[in-house]
Design a protein around this nucleic acid. Structure first.
Lengths: 183, 183
DNA sequence: GTCTATAGATAGATAGAC
DNA sequence: GTCTATCTATCTATAGAC
């Protein structure tokens, strides 16, 4: 396949984003991981911005796919809180999202993609609330979204003990607030 | 004063952190902003890690001072939600916190400082809840903390319209959940 | 179309002058 | 103690070989 090389490059870029964050995404490192020369990499992606945009696109697609499975098989609020707390503890995933967030702060092209991802996640949270039998309001969805993002970031930076349990308790509290809302 | 030069360097570093984030904090840029040669900067801070640690220390002190004034003159939940939503919209402040967070993910020394900052902020949120007449529980404080961090990050990356209003609504919902808790 | 040698730009660290 | 010239490493981009 003629596109295999490009796929290899993007896979290498994603792995680096997971392990080292945005600062690690340099042409030499991606090239080394793919077994290419740096000057060869620039044939496929002429500038660093091109490479970043392509890797960001791939990363966001992967995140969107993962978001789709958020609401699968959730029966109770407690179970859902557990599932979301598990998501918070996936530090490598948080590192990718933090890298995208950072890139979005600088590159308008990445910002547009990031906004798209955010909208999709918010939509997914809305359907999740619906399947739990909870009212779906903009404020409720925003709250859940913010709690997820906030806890993920806090856990990544602090690595405090009982992170998972604390996260679950915070989620349950958020769900309580949402359940009391007018639909 | 003999320490003036060091203070100038840290001020320059802080300004760069505000405007460009962690990636912008390089020896040449900090030196240029201070009017020094890069090789002179290394006299005061021999390695980049030394510079980063010192700037992080200064940034965290400033954040701690700002956190102290969080609970000042808050009478109602609505007013408090407004105040916190305003905090969320201070993107330059968020950029500094994001930079510290990032640095904490890599440098253990910064991580320790960041944990200290987090603990202080959590304590401050606890007293804030108390002065609002709301019950103070670990889960409630964690929830409020996570919402603040999450909204700040989301707003920085997306710059969505009505960000302030949406944030305020999310905060009010969080406060409602907390007010229903057993102390 | 695919790939490489090489140049150019930027960051970080060290030895040594004053 | 204060400051600089200089070296090394790393990253990015381009011209050109096959």
């Amino acid at each position: 396949m003629i596109q295999d090389r490009r796929k290899e490059i993007l896979d290498a870029g994603l792995a680096i984003l997971r392990e080292q964050g945005l600062a690690g995404l340099t042409q030499p490192r991606v090239a080394a991981r793919t077994g290419l020369r740096q000057s060869h990499l620039t044939y496929y992606y002429p500038t660093r911005a091109d490479l970043l945009a392509a890797v960001a696109r791939a990363a966001i697609s992967a995140q969107q796919a993962a978001a789709k499975s958020l609401g699968e098989g959730v029966a109770s609020v407690d179970q859902c809180a557990t599932k979301m707390a598990n998501g918070v503890m996936r530090h490598e995933n948080t590192r990718v999202l933090a890298a995208l967030n950072q890139a979005a702060d600088q590159e308008p092209a990445v910002r547009a993609m990031f906004n798209e991802l955010t909208e999709g996640f918010v939509t997914e949270l809305g359907t999740l609330l619906g399947s739990l039998g909870l009212p779906t309001t903009p404020a409720g969805v925003d709250l859940l979204h913010a709690v997820f993002v906030g806890l993920s970031i806090i856990e990544l930076a602090t690595s405090r003990p009982n992170g998972k349990e604390r996260s679950k308790a915070a989620f349950k509290l958020a769900f309580e607030a949402i359940s009391g809302e007018e639909p």
